[in-house]
Write a protein that binds this DNA or RNA. Structure first.
Lengths: 233, 233
DNA sequence: GCGCGGGCTCAACACACTGTTGACCGAGCC
DNA sequence: GGCTCGGTCAACAGTGTGTTGAGCCCGCGC
């Protein structure tokens, strides 16, 4: 589900993504294990360090030393510090993608339960990779690859939500209202910001135990709000 | 209601804010005008450059040259690049604060018009200082002062909104539901993220002309949603 | 068993940027 | 006239990034 290199499935981005990897087609499979091990060691080091300080406080040297190699050697495996995070993020995103799709797919009798399952899956995944999530949120501003990856998955989620909203409207369960896509966009952005706030804990934030309930409440009222309530357009 | 700094003027934070300015009490008022002029020149240069590239792409040297001074001289006026942005942000925030407070204060007959005016004021202010807004969003992650400033104003806005929601509930216009504070938090975060998306334009985003309508719709349905709609708690 | 090629490694370098030091200039004040 | 003090900058020290070039080591063909 989330092994990173099948070059297919949810995450075909990685190869194309990072700004010109040095070793385009490396083909490293020469019985010497150290190559993959070191790559994995770098990734593991990154995740470990990220848990204790923000990405900006971690240098390439830290990553290299943590993985037991020198700085130039690091550059053999990754084109930059950012590329490491991109790989990590890619895995998390693929996991969230799979989890929320699964929750979405097995729509229960009550469609509203489906929304809950989806929000829950999404939230649980990012919570369980909190450090990567927070670092990615930070890096989004300065790194075009991260931005692009995030834009792509957001687009997928928005499209799926818009679709689901329209289905609910067609079957008469939800009233007409805002364009489904606009609604889907803002609800997704809502989740993004609220979960970020809860996980990072700075500024006013919703408690971790309540966050799914609160989000769900807003989603449901935005989607199913009876036509009686004025839109004020 | 939500003016944050009774301590004179709109922007009394600046002195206290930045991490230990070198010139604690400068008292520069010696008939030589250049001092203030230069400070203003730095600020103006920053805003100009920010319009064309992100903060991370601007060096202290760029700022100094733009203001016609050398790099060390820059440090006489500001303790760092970040401090410049903090000053800029502080002004924008004070403006947003004043505008939304004003909109809130002159509550019209229809309370819902009050919400619209508030969202509109908030949105218009940040739109008219787009570059500062976007830079601040970026810097929030790496700079504790910016984070603190933002947390403070968010707290004010959240408190004011929670207050208003409770007032609506008391007078029977809005049904009971989520804790007012939680609702206020997520609605504020919603605005923050959605406006950011619209102004920055990356990822799926709501069109600039529609954004206030869309936000308002979500706010109103979350606040006024008739009790009939299930909360699912 | 030997050399040869390529995956892999690192010391050393070139560069960009940050923040600081110390000397200096000129204007007003006594 | 000397003295202080706001203001200014050349030069330095430090920390980070990404690159280069020489070289190691291991498997493989001969």
């Amino acid at each position: 589900m989330l092994s990173p290199r099948p070059a297919a499935g949810t995450l075909a981005i990685v190869p194309a993504s990072s700004t010109a990897r040095p070793r385009a087609a490396r083909g490293r499979r020469t019985a010497r294990p150290s190559g993959d091990d070191r790559e994995a060691a770098i990734l593991a080091t990154a995740e470990r360090l990220l848990a204790e300080r923000p990405l900006s406080g971690i240098s390439v040297d830290d990553l290299a030393r943590g993985a037991g190699i020198s700085r130039p050697t690091f550059y053999f495996y990754f084109s930059s510090k950012d590329a490491v995070l991109l790989t990590l993020l890619d895995r998390v995103v693929a996991e969230a993608d799979a989890a929320s799709a699964a929750a979405f797919a097995r729509r229960p009798a009550d469609a509203r339960q489906g929304w809950r399952a989806m929000i829950d899956a999404y939230s649980a995944t990012f919570r369980s990779h909190r450090s990567v999530t927070l670092a990615a949120a930070e890096l989004r501003f300065s790194n075009a690859d991260v931005r692009a990856l995030w834009a792509r998955v957001s687009e997928d989620w928005v499209a799926a939500c818009a679709e689901a909203i329209e289905a609910e409207r067609r079957r008469g369960a939800a009233p007409p209202g805002l364009p489904a896509r606009d609604l889907a966009i803002v609800l997704n952005q809502l989740n993004e910001r609220v979960l970020y706030g809860t996980f990072s804990g700075d500024g006013p934030a919703v408690a971790e135990d309540d966050v799914v309930d609160v989000l769900l409440d807003v989603w449901l009222s935005a989607i199913y709000r009876p036509a009686g309530a004025p839109t004020d357009r």
